[in-house]
Amino acid sequence: MSSNFKIQISNPCHEKWGEMIDNNTGKFCNSCQKSVVDFTDFSDRDLHSWFTENQGKSCGRFKPEQLDRLIHVKSSFAISRFKPCLIAASLFAFLSFPKLGKGEVIKPSTVQTAKTITNFDKKNQDEALSDSLRFIKGKVTDKDKSALPGVTIRILGEKYGYSTDANGEFSLTYIIQKENDFKELDIRYIGFENKNVKFKSTEVYLNIILNEDTTAFMGDVVIVRTPFWKRIYSKMRNQLRDINPFYKK
Rank of each mutant, 00 (worst) to 15 (best):
K99W: 10
N238D: 14
N167T: 12
L156C: 10
Y189C: 09
I190P: 01
L185F: 06
G56T: 11
I117G: 03
P149L: 07
H48E: 03
D131L: 15
I209Q: 08
Y247D: 09
A128P: 01
D121N: 15
K83F: 04
V140F: 02
H72V: 12
I209S: 04
F82A: 13
Q125L: 15
S10I: 13
S201F: 04
W17R: 00
K178T: 09
K63S: 13
E104S: 14
N30H: 13
P108R: 11
L206C: 08
I232D: 08
E179R: 03
F170D: 03
S109Q: 14
G168A: 11
Q8I: 05
K198N: 13
T116P: 01
A88L: 12
V105T: 10
S130K: 15
T141S: 07
F42M: 07
R81Y: 07
I209E: 14
A128Q: 15
Y160L: 11
R241G: 13
T214G: 02
V151W: 03
M20H: 03
H14Q: 12
M218F: 00
T164K: 02
H14G: 06
G168M: 04
E179M: 06
I21C: 02
G191C: 04
R231L: 13
D181Q: 15
D22M: 03
Y174H: 08
G191K: 00
V221Y: 00
W229T: 12
I223G: 05
E169N: 06
N54A: 07
K159N: 14
L129Y: 11
K200N: 15
S76Y: 09
K107H: 09
F182W: 08
K137S: 15
K6D: 06
L206F: 06
I176V: 15
N244H: 07
P12L: 05
I79S: 06
T215S: 13
R231Y: 09
C13Q: 04
V151Q: 01
T164W: 01
I155H: 04
Q66D: 05
R61M: 02
I209C: 02
Y160S: 11
S80R: 10
K123S: 15
Y233W: 11
Q8G: 10
H14Y: 12
N238I: 07
R134E: 10
L210T: 04
S201P: 07
Y174A: 06
I243D: 07
D186S: 15
L240W: 14
S58V: 04
D44Y: 10
W229R: 09
L91I: 14
V197Y: 05
L129W: 07
K143T: 12
E193W: 00
A78V: 10
E53H: 09
R188I: 11
I136W: 03
V221S: 01
Q33T: 08
N119D: 06
E169T: 11
A114S: 15
D186P: 00
Q66F: 08
C29F: 02
I79A: 10
F217Y: 08
Q112I: 15
L100Q: 11
L206Q: 10
V140M: 05
D38L: 00
T141Y: 02
S163A: 08
S130I: 05
V197R: 02
Q125D: 12
S75R: 13
G157D: 04
N238K: 14
Q55P: 01
T173S: 14
E19Y: 14
F199V: 02
N23F: 04
D22P: 10
V36E: 01
W17L: 05
F170G: 01
N23V: 08
I175S: 07
E104W: 07
D68W: 03
I153L: 13
S130Y: 05
D121R: 03
I153V: 13
